[in-house]
Amino acid sequence: MFQYVVRRTLGSIPTLFVLAAITFFMMRVAPGDPFSGNRRLTPEVLANLRRAFNLDLPLWEQFWRYIWGVLHFDFGPSIKNRDYSVSELIGIGFPTSLEVGMWAMLVAAIIGIALGIAGALRRNTSVDYSVGAIAMVGLAIPIFVIGPVAQSYFGLHLRWLPISGWGDSWTYRILPVLTLALPNIAYISRLMRGSMIEIMRTNYVRTARAKGLGERRTILRHALKGALLPVVAYLGPATAITITGSIVVEQIFSIPGIGRYFVDAAINRDYPLVMGVTLFYGSIVIFANLLTDIVRGLLDPKVSYE
């Protein structure tokens, strides 16, 4: 198990390297640079600035310098946010994104799984159809519609919750968490319903019934584990994406997470920040996949850590 984790971690290094290379060169192929939008700079100042950030060096050399820095956990300074390093900016933004994302996925997993099971066990009843309707809404309406609608209803009209912003009170968390959770609730409930229906038809669930174990035990001990496997496989990557900051939700609710930095960085061609956030995203996704595989191994004895 420990060996497996080490092996997978080492195995992810080439992946991250390729990710870094692709991002680096794609960014440079695109026209413009961090200072090109600024008309007031004289050519001399511009040249000095470029030299200060090593942008005058050959591309290959810049790339190797960057990788060399990363190997020493130095992601460079942010070009736009002068007083901060990339690591500091990620350190400032990530806890907020993590908080919103984790809550959203927790809510989505619990509600989605529960709704999915209810739909599967009460198949073709009003329960099932209601769950299906919720899922349709969650999947069909994009976040950039749900967010503002929720803001204007719960924030402006009812005045129950703050419209946007971020403070210590939990009331700031509710709308962004629910907005982020809704599409996941929809997707997870569909996934869970489908896999539960399939499992309830298997021979081994029939065996459990033949053993007279009772419906509760049959579902909880015999059906649930197998039915959860596809959901777990989805939850890992989905959580990685959600906790690294939903760009849209952070914009809508003015949440100071890293999703916002990423957008700003991309627009401003803040090369080190884009690179840093991308590699950070990549690592989180890889970590989440590893975690998913470990959990799947715990659920499914046929998966071995070889």
Partner: peptide, 25 residues
Amino acid sequence: LDGIRGSAMSMIFQDPMTSLNPYMR
């Protein structure tokens, strides 16, 4: 039926590959 299924009256199924729960010892 659960009172007698599996105790007084029980059944052996055709396919032992799929009739046992793969996720349980």
